[in-house]
Nucleic acid binder design. Structure first.
Lengths: 244, 244
DNA sequence: GTCAATTATTGACGGAGCGTCAAAAATTTC
DNA sequence: GAAATTTTTGACGCTCCGTCAATAATTGAC
């Protein structure tokens, strides 16, 4: 049923090519450097042709963001798999977040652009929905761990909190710290010298505060995170490579 | 020494008038609606006159952000004062944050715009420095509470964390949740029904996880936050009114 | 193999906002 | 009240956006 002519295939490939051209411009020079004229001339096409693929540059950014969030989702899935206790798999997802921010910094940056109100508001609701679905997917991966722990008794019942609201706190602290780190070049001047370690410790204390077993003291916890990072970073790199 | 002619006073007042005109445009219609032409025609001045006050519209936004952050700083100061235990004054600052987000929503929005890379990168380093100072001021208000608690023994020593890094975690979770709430209209669809209460609980658990006295269970904590809110909201409203 | 129909590409164009700057107007100084 | 200084003005050149009529390429029927 799905016949694809050579020409149609060429057009699909050009959509990919546009994304490949646009991404480094956005990453290196920001949104205002990313113009349709520039993408067109860079590819030796007329501007109108680019407009056949994307109705505006914001949609290009959102398409890049969709790719980025799919990669994030894969990393989360990889972190949540395995048969260790749920709290440790949760820690692995934390490590996946660190990996994503550090080693997939382009994708991380693209996600920031996506949250930019200018961009979000100008792009189509179709792509917005896809983004929301990716977001929900990541949320579900973590919420499943919470549910599992509640069932198994590792995590005492949450009186006033849904499992998703439990995840929301972790999401907020992780996300918040990453935004602050990215947008406050002067964290050191504020007295924050190692934000990554700081957030690791806060997550440990937070989960301890919820009584999530196994309870770990700070020292054990930091050691364990290092081990998980050493073990999982190669797997994450593999996933990153495959995500072409 | 500081002689001010009538004309100079008029010019200073006009700077204020520009801010008063620009703010509702930014709040109601966003950044791209805020144009120098529009501000000028709205005030019945030529565009060049506006450019005598601000070299670009981004600077207008940053100036609004400076006003906003000064208000935030005042609220923090008010929350940190008094002679109750430090942990409770910290909770009061949390309530001040909630007040700011809910009741000073315009200022809160302006702060979001300020973090927009387009705006930040185009504005002068003078204003950027002032913003950083406000940020540092707020940080210091909270960090002082941490130091005080460490000295008094309410808070066990932090092995791997500076007091500012302790604050960083609270900042991250508060800030992160507010951004997520503001930029994810679909939190309910994700299973997050009451993000404000959720973050209150997370803060309680986090501080409990650090062993910060007095330890409170969730129920006591939520009750106490309500009481603090009822007591302090009127004071905060007073500060808001005075902050013209 | 030809030609008409369909589809894709092109780039000039109108519109909008930015920031500038020489000329005009207002104000201050002497 | 005239010269010097300061302030205001708005037209201008620039860049980018998104459109669309004209042109070119492709397809498919015969």
């Amino acid at each position: 049923m799905v016949e694809i002519t050579r020409k149609q295939r060429e057009i699909q490939q050009r959509t990919q090519e546009i994304l490949r051209v646009a991404k480094p411009i956005l990453i290196a020079e920001g949104l205002q450097a990313l113009t349709m004229d520039r993408v067109a001339s860079h590819m030796q096409y007329a501007k109108g042709t680019i407009y056949n693929h994307f109705p505006n540059k914001e949609e290009i950014v959102l398409e890049l963001a969709i790719e980025a969030m799919k990669l994030r989702h894969k990393l989360f899935d990889a972190g949540a798999s395995g048969d260790r206790p749920a709290r440790m798999r949760l820690m692995t997802i934390g490590v996946a977040c660190e990996f994503y921010t550090q080693r997939c910094s382009e994708e991380f940056q693209v996600e920031q652009w996506m949250r930019n109100a200018n961009i979000w508001d100008k792009s189509s609701s179709e792509r917005q929905v896809i983004i929301r679905q990716c977001e929900a997917g990541c949320m579900q991966v973590v919420a499943r761990l919470v549910r599992e722990s509640l069932e198994q008794g590792d995590l005492p019942a949450l009186d006033h909190l849904s499992p998703e609201e439990m995840v929301f706190g972790l999401w907020a602290i992780t996300f918040g710290s990453q935004i602050l780190t990215a947008s406050s070049p002067s964290l050191e001047a504020l007295g924050v010298f190692d934000p990554i370690r700081a957030i690791r410790i806060h997550c440990c204390r937070l989960l301890n505060g919820f009584g999530w077993q196994p309870i770990l003291d700070e020292h054990q916890y930091l050691k364990l995170v290092e081990n998980i990072a050493a073990e999982y970073f190669p797997r994450f790199e593999q996933i990153q490579r495959e995500h072409r």
